[in-house]
Amino acid sequence: MILSGLEIAERIGNDIEIDPYNSDQLNPNSYNLRLHDELMIYEDSILDMRKENKVSKLTIPESGYELIPGKLYLGRTVERTRTDNLVPMLEGRSSIGRLGMFVHVTAGFGDVGFNGFWTLEIFVVQPLIIYPNVEICQIYYHHLDGEHTVYKSGKYQNNNGIQPSKLHEDFK
């Protein structure tokens, strides 16, 4: 079952934290998260799963930044979220998708107990100018049945910003 927007609002400060929280971003069954002004791109044209790939940081100016097709951009949400006893999920807003922008390649599924900013895996099908603080995606919550363990991965938990892939750590 997915939580309603009213239930999300009711649980803020308990098993759901969204910081900063703004009730204007609440939907009937989700909450809109905004795009931070930071972006990260990989420097090499060929990435290697076994290695820590080099990245560069960019800042999205208020006047906008043009995304180019065929390039992966890592972004992050303005909001930090924490969830206990629920499974957080992330999807792009339909208005964003209708512009040919994807906000995640495969990482829309969160873990119970996740605490941090969401890293967005952004790509576009045609050139698109983006702006900071736009409501880019929505978080929604599923109930979790049965006993469970809480997400404790040292890779991405309690992050302070954009997280490039740390898959190379799995090869050690």
Rank of each mutant, 00 (worst) to 15 (best):
L3G: 01
E7P: 04
E10A: 05
R11Q: 03
R11F: 01
I12M: 07
E17I: 06
E17R: 05
I18H: 04
D19C: 10
P20W: 03
N22W: 08
Q25L: 04
N27E: 02
N29S: 09
S30W: 03
S30N: 01
L35R: 00
H36P: 09
L39C: 09
L39F: 07
D44G: 11
D48N: 13
R50Y: 15
K51E: 15
E52A: 08
E52R: 10
N53K: 06
K54M: 12
K54G: 06
V55C: 12
V55K: 08
S56E: 15
T59H: 13
T59E: 15
P61R: 14
G64C: 14
G64I: 14
L67M: 00
Y73S: 00
V78E: 07
V78S: 08
E79F: 08
E79R: 00
R80F: 05
T81H: 03
T81V: 02
T83D: 07
D84G: 08
N85P: 09
N85D: 12
V87S: 10
V87R: 10
G92C: 09
R93K: 13
R93N: 12
R93P: 04
S94Y: 04
I96D: 10
V103Y: 04
V103D: 02
T106L: 03
A107R: 10
G108L: 02
G108Q: 10
G108M: 11
F109P: 05
N115S: 11
F117I: 00
F117L: 00
W118R: 00
L120C: 00
V124E: 01
V124F: 05
Q126W: 07
Q126S: 15
P127K: 06
P127N: 06
P127V: 14
L128Q: 08
I130H: 05
Y131W: 15
N133S: 15
V134D: 13
E135A: 14
I136N: 02
I139F: 01
Y141M: 12
Y141I: 11
D145C: 08
G146S: 05
G146H: 11
G146V: 00
G146D: 07
T149Y: 14
Y151A: 06
G154N: 13
Y156A: 13
N158A: 15
N159I: 03
N159R: 06
G161A: 11
G161H: 08
Q163V: 15
P164Y: 12
L167S: 02
E169N: 13
D170C: 11
F171H: 12
K172G: 14
